[in-house]
Design a protein around this nucleic acid. Structure first.
Length: 562
RNA sequence: CGGAACGUGGCGCAGUCCGGUAGCGUACACGGCUGGGGGCCGUGUGGUCGCGGGUUCAAAUCCCGCCGUUCCGACCA
């Protein structure tokens, strides 16, 4: 491809709206352009990489028996009502204004619809169906370039099995396929146990990339490899020991004290002597959640314990329920159910809110003073805590979710009546799994992991071209002739070559553009060198330069490819 | 959805406080020079100052409303 005839609009300056490296570099290298918040056009260079990613995915999906579909993005809303997911997705789903259609955010329902009509016998299974297609989600706040968009490319696969063992196998095949895909793409990732959330199902794992631009938080143990989304992560926390004789409850005036830190400062006590109260609404009823000190409530854990969605109570509700404002709420005389974190189990001599604004109570003995209290693991874990598996230190950091695999079970097949007959002629719901990869995110994450101060550093199969030729002064006949000659030579050898043949660009301009686009190998042709029958090879990643006789170029390139 | 900032040629920005000729850099076109790290000189093209309303003799500038974009937070199958 000759640059003079290509549309690769590089930018010298950093666009004002871009913040994270992958976004900046994709815009600057002419791979993508934004159309609207969270909606991007792929330009030829960017789309070339996307196609390389999808080829790898296709190969690995076919290798596990996957069959490729292409489903409509435009769906009748009715079918989403069958599984209750119009409500579950809520505002995240796009609805059309002039017809009862929605834009599909995923395709469990549609795949189940097709399975329902055709897979009537256990003999029809297992099946793996997948597609690479555009998904739509009305994200409240798109961010980080293509990492979180309202429209994005997803490979979504679905497995259909007649037995639970079959589901385990299908799941394991996808797990392996995902490892192959991300390994081949050259991405550094790790796998974490995750919450299935509203997708439903029994088990799910996420393929993650460590990144400050991530929106998930994960815990990872370097020592034993334990990794989990903080939504479900656990750590070793001993319950706080009982502290001497329990005192009588006593009330203290604590004017304008709202936080645990302020309370500790005011009373000169340690945060572990306090019990923080949070009121949530579950099933329209209030529930008091009691945490030690500044420990944060993990709402995902709370929801899975209660078996449904919760939301924090509004300030007005707090007053109505407890008689006090936030900051002065506590377990003593709380009228509704109470659930406390394991760390507080049976503890005594705690300070907590008095359910009277600007008052706290001391000498609280949870065993003595609070009836009907339940204990559970409710904490959000923090960096530095101990791993439950090996006792070593856990790291907690941000990560981007590249892929997510779910054992769905029969949630969708039951809801939609997708049944098959087993060996005994009995009707059973099909057992399903679903498996997703964000293609845009694979691209963005690769760049997040492979760039320097000059631009992108491509390597491996995702590189949009193998080699970039720079003809330094194309107005010189010898340079023009030789660089064209080498361009044809390399093309005939099967290399995918980008040839900077622009006549009006100065060498510095070409060098900078080449570093920005980041093709792994540059072949530089200058008047000075070519007069001595020499060309220069430059490795993008290391900056290493090799001068070599023109005739030995192919040989050297083959050597470098090893 | 809560908080904050921004919106001026393709891109990056100044001008707005204190109303009075719409500017700089870059890109682009043409001519010339230059040719190993985004070069130089000259001549040009290109803008409803986000949109609507109001105040005023006069609005990019002041006031009101809306829209868009970004960041922090909430949410995120």
């Amino acid at each position: 491809m000759k640059i003079s005839k290509s549309f690769i609009p590089t930018l010298k300056e950093v666009p004002a709206d871009a913040v994270i490296p992958s976004h900046i570099l994709m815009l600057r290298s002419g791979m993508v352009r934004m159309l609207s918040a969270g909606i991007y056009s792929f330009l030829p260079l960017g789309y070339k990489v996307i196609k390389k990613i999808s080829n790898i995915i296709n190969e690995e999906m076919v290798a596990i028996g996957g069959q490729e579909f292409l489903l409509p993005a435009l769906n009748p809303r009715e079918i989403w009502e069958e599984t209750g997911r119009v409500e579950a997705f809520g505002d995240t789903m796009f609805h059309l204004k002039n017809r009862d259609y929605v834009l599909a955010p995923t395709h469990e329902e549609i795949m189940t619809f097709h399975a329902k009509g055709t897979m009537k016998s256990y003999k029809d299974m297992p099946q793996i169906w997948y597609q690479i297609q555009t998904k739509f989600r009305n994200e409240a706040r798109p961010r980080s370039g293509i990492i979180r968009g309202r429209q994005f490319l997803m490979k979504d696969a679905y497995s259909f099995d007649s037995t639970w063992e079959g589901l385990d196998e299908s799941y394991a095949k996808h797990y392996k396929a995902y490892q192959n895909i991300f390994d081949r793409c050259g991405i550094e990732y790790f796998v974490v146990g995750a919450s299935s959330g509203a997708m439903g199902g029994s088990k799910s794992e996420e393929f993650m990339v460590k990144s400050d631009a991530g929106e998930d938080t994960v815990a990872h143990c370097k020592s034993c490899g334990y990794a989990a989304n903080v939504e479900v992560a656990q750590s070793v926390i001993e319950p706080i020991k009982r502290n001497g004789e329990s005192k009588e409850n006593f009330e203290i005036s604590t004017p304008n004290i709202h936080s645990i830190d302020e309370l500790c400062e005011f009373l000169k006590i340690d945060e572990r002597e306090t019990a923080k109260s949070r009121v949530y609404i579950f099933d329209k009823k209030p529930i008091l959640v009691l945490m030690s000190g500044n420990d944060e409530v993990n709402e995902t854990k709370l929801e899975s314990i209660l078996g449904g969605e919760v939301r924090p109570a509004h300030p007005e509700e707090l007053v109505e329920i407890t008689g006090a404002e936030a900051g002065s709420i506590g377990p003593i005389d709380f009228k509704n159910s109470i659930i406390a974190d394991n760390r507080l189990k049976d503890g005594n001599n705690f300070y907590s809110g008095a359910n009277k604004t600007d008052f706290h109570i001391g000498g609280i003995d949870l065993k003595r003073d609070v009836e009907n209290i339940e204990y559970s693991d409710l904490r959000t874990i923090e960096s530095g805590e101990e791993c439950t598996r090996c006792g070593k230190t856990l790291d907690v950091f941000k990560a981007i979710e590249l892929g997510h695999i779910f054992k769905l079970g029969t949630k969708y097949s039951e809801a939609m009546g997708a049944n098959f007959l087993n060996e005994n002629g009995q009707a059973n719901p099909i057992i399903m799994g679903s498996y997703g990869i964000g293609l845009d995110r694979v691209l963005a994450c690769f760049i997040e992991q492979n760039y320097d101060d000059k631009g992108i550093v491509w390597k491996g199969p995702l590189a949009p071209f193998d080699i970039q030729i720079l003809g330094l002064n194309m107005k010189k006949e010898i340079v023009e002739i030789t660089s064209n000659e080498i361009y044809e030579l390399l093309k005939n050898e099967g290399y995918d070559v980008l040839f900077d043949d622009r006549r009006d660009a100065k060498p510095g301009f070409k060098f900078n553009d080449a570093e920005l686009i980041g093709i792994p190998i540059q072949v530089v042709i200058s008047e000075k060198n070519i007069k001595e029958n020499i060309v220069e090879i430059k490795i993008r990643q290391t900056g290493e330069k090799v001068l070599i006789e023109k005739d030995k170029l192919l040989e050297k390139l083959k050597e470098l490819a090893k």
